[in-house]
Design a protein around this nucleic acid. Structure first.
Lengths: 265, 265
DNA sequence: CGGATACTTGATGAGAATCAACCCGGGTGG
DNA sequence: CCACCCGGGTTGATTCTCATCAAGTATCCG
């Protein structure tokens, strides 16, 4: 269940001082800090009310197709975003870590498109949809950070395609791990030591494979010396080799060297 | 090549009167109209300069990894968004039609993440990145429309996952056609008569299949009486049947009826 | 401790990638 | 104007990967 903490962020965790933020080049942590800085102002101001929610592992933060009047920014922990087909099959569309936004998709027509489930005990900052514009207008830095974040989110949408583009199961898994590694790095975690918070089945769903295949491919990569796998604790031993596996696409046939040519058309 | 039309949009095509726009429930056409309304203001104002570009079929509007200082809104025509792997294999991530935004992904770190190629002679409205905030601040309706549009774009990111989730080739193609149909409807086109602007190979890349498989699956659907296929002219004869094929997922095994349960955790 | 879930491993079959040949239409150049 | 070429599309034969079914082990929960 979700537990609302009435505590505003005030000086919740003033870790690093807010950077000057040249245009849009801010790291992902900044939005959280900015929201922290904004929080007490907001607490005073009537309209907006920022709260931190605790989300227990396995709890569903947002429900698919539920009315969307909240936006969430992940503060700690992790989530999986899923979409459930009519036949009940649930497909994992992606994962969300610190400073990722959850629920923005619902702004289009007031209903969430995806559901989000916590993979571990997590905390999120809740932003009322209506307060969004006000906040953005009042705080330019926050506005830019938000814009930047959305762009990143949109760019990440390509990740799933990238992962699916590789036909070979091993390549898909390798790509997933590379992605995960770089995202963990972006969150300030180790890019080599990966603690998988999601089940094999979640990964399988994300990659469009059977969960048995994940097991097998993990073993293949492990035997190849790329990884050390112990349960959900995965260490990348040979990043080069892993990347090499990730690179391997089918074919590379069909000389796709035409874009430059098409451009001159 | 791209031909810049200095002509501002002024009263370019004042088709339907701009709706009052309750919150965010606006159709996709509205952003274009709003931009049209804004255009002459912008022309007068110093900072912003809205231009319409012509993009010839096959021309590349934005290049992957190129510096991103422009944002484009599709005014007519269509585009494919692609990402090229290191080995030269180009993967189609999605398609863009009227009122879709191209290039927002570049706002994160000033470099476009995807490339966009025109599938037919098209026109786009070019928005300088720097002018974006100004415009949004000045015109609330436009701000909301933009927010709505981005949300929609984000939601569409789930489309590709949805399509890939189906293992069976026929199901993937069926889903693609269903998606296409509804998007064409959203653009004011016929949802039954689909004029495919993209090649079989593009579709194959989008669906993660071989282009031969597209041919075969088209035939299967055609023989099943769902479609009438003539070259790139596809007519949906039996939408029900098509949707039925689209629904069929592998398994539906692995009782994924746990979300409701997990929620109560 | 017992039940359930997560994970692993093996055997088998279906389905799609691949290779190859072919047709068709449009554009180019002679 | 015709011949040619090339990219797009279709179809067939073969190969091989991965989904599926099945059984078994490990692990976490109450």
């Amino acid at each position: 269940m979700l537990t609302a903490l009435p505590t505003p962020l005030s000086h919740a965790r003033s870790a690093s001082p807010p950077r000057s933020g040249g245009d849009c080049q801010m790291g992902p942590a900044d939005l959280i800090e900015l929201l922290g800085g904004v929080a007490d102002l907001a607490a005073r101001s009537d309209t907006t009310r920022l709260a931190v929610l605790r989300v227990a592992r396995g709890a569903m933060l947002v429900h698919e197709a539920a009315p969307a009047d909240m936006l969430y920014v992940v503060r700690s922990g992790s989530f999986k975003c899923i979409k459930t087909a009519e036949d009940g099959y649930e497909h994992v569309l992606g994962f969300a870590w610190r400073s990722d936004v959850i629920g923005y998709d619902g702004l289009a027509d007031q209903r969430y498109v995806f559901a989000a489930v916590a993979l571990e005990d997590s905390r999120v900052i809740a932003l009322p949809r209506m307060a969004l514009r006000t906040l953005r207008l009042r705080h330019e830095a926050l506005d830019l950070a938000f814009q930047c974040l959305l762009a990143r989110q949109l760019a990440h949408a390509g990740d799933i395609a990238e992962v699916m583009a590789a036909v070979a199961a091993d390549a898909r898994l390798a790509r997933f791990l590379v992605q995960l590694s770089s995202r963990m790095a972006a969150c300030g975690q180790s890019p080599r030591r990966l603690l998988l918070r999601m089940s094999r089945r979640d990964i399988a769903s994300y990659l469009g494979l059977a969960h048995e295949t994940i097991s097998r491919s993990l073993r293949v990569l492990s035997d190849a010396g790329c990884l050390r796998v112990a349960e959900r604790d995965v260490e990348i031993l040979d990043a080069q080799a892993l990347r090499r596996v990730a690179r391997s696409t089918r074919g590379a046939a069909d000389d796709e060297v035409r874009p430059a040519l098409a451009c001159a058309a």
